[in-house]
Amino acid sequence: RSLKHLCRLKIRKCMGRLHLRCPVFMSFLPLPNRLKAYVLY
């Protein structure tokens, strides 16, 4: 697996499933929209 994929998995694990599904939580993250979309992919 690529480093990019492993990073996405780690971020998702740290955030938890409930936060990933909450659009309000995701909108408050201080991340560029492209990065938010990548994490959610």
Rank of each mutant, 00 (worst) to 15 (best):
40 L>E: 10
18 L>V: 03
12 R>L: 09
11 I>R: 00
15 M>V: 07
34 R>H: 03
28 F>S: 09
19 H>Q: 10
23 P>R: 15
23 P>V: 15
2 S>R: 07
22 C>K: 02
36 K>W: 09
28 F>T: 05
15 M>I: 12
6 L>A: 12
12 R>K: 12
9 L>H: 08
22 C>A: 08
20 L>T: 11
29 L>P: 04
11 I>H: 01
29 L>T: 03
34 R>C: 06
34 R>E: 09
15 M>F: 07
15 M>C: 04
4 K>P: 06
13 K>A: 10
41 Y>M: 14
32 P>Y: 13
20 L>W: 05
36 K>A: 03
22 C>P: 08
36 K>Y: 04
33 N>A: 13
2 S>E: 09
28 F>W: 13
6 L>D: 13
32 P>Q: 02
4 K>D: 00
39 V>T: 06
37 A>C: 08
7 C>Y: 04
10 K>Q: 08
35 L>S: 01
19 H>Y: 04
19 H>E: 05
25 F>V: 11
31 L>C: 02
26 M>K: 09
19 H>T: 06
21 R>T: 07
7 C>A: 11
5 H>P: 02
38 Y>L: 04
39 V>A: 04
1 R>S: 03
33 N>T: 10
3 L>S: 00
29 L>W: 06
20 L>N: 01
26 M>R: 09
35 L>D: 00
9 L>M: 11
5 H>E: 10
32 P>F: 15
41 Y>G: 15
37 A>P: 00
7 C>N: 03
39 V>L: 08
2 S>K: 09
19 H>P: 04
33 N>L: 03
5 H>S: 11
4 K>M: 10
22 C>G: 04
15 M>G: 04
25 F>K: 12
14 C>W: 15
10 K>E: 06
5 H>L: 06
38 Y>Q: 03
22 C>N: 01
32 P>M: 13
21 R>W: 14
23 P>H: 05
20 L>K: 12
34 R>F: 07
7 C>G: 05
2 S>W: 08
7 C>K: 02
36 K>I: 05
3 L>D: 04
41 Y>S: 15
23 P>S: 14
13 K>G: 11
41 Y>W: 11
31 L>M: 05
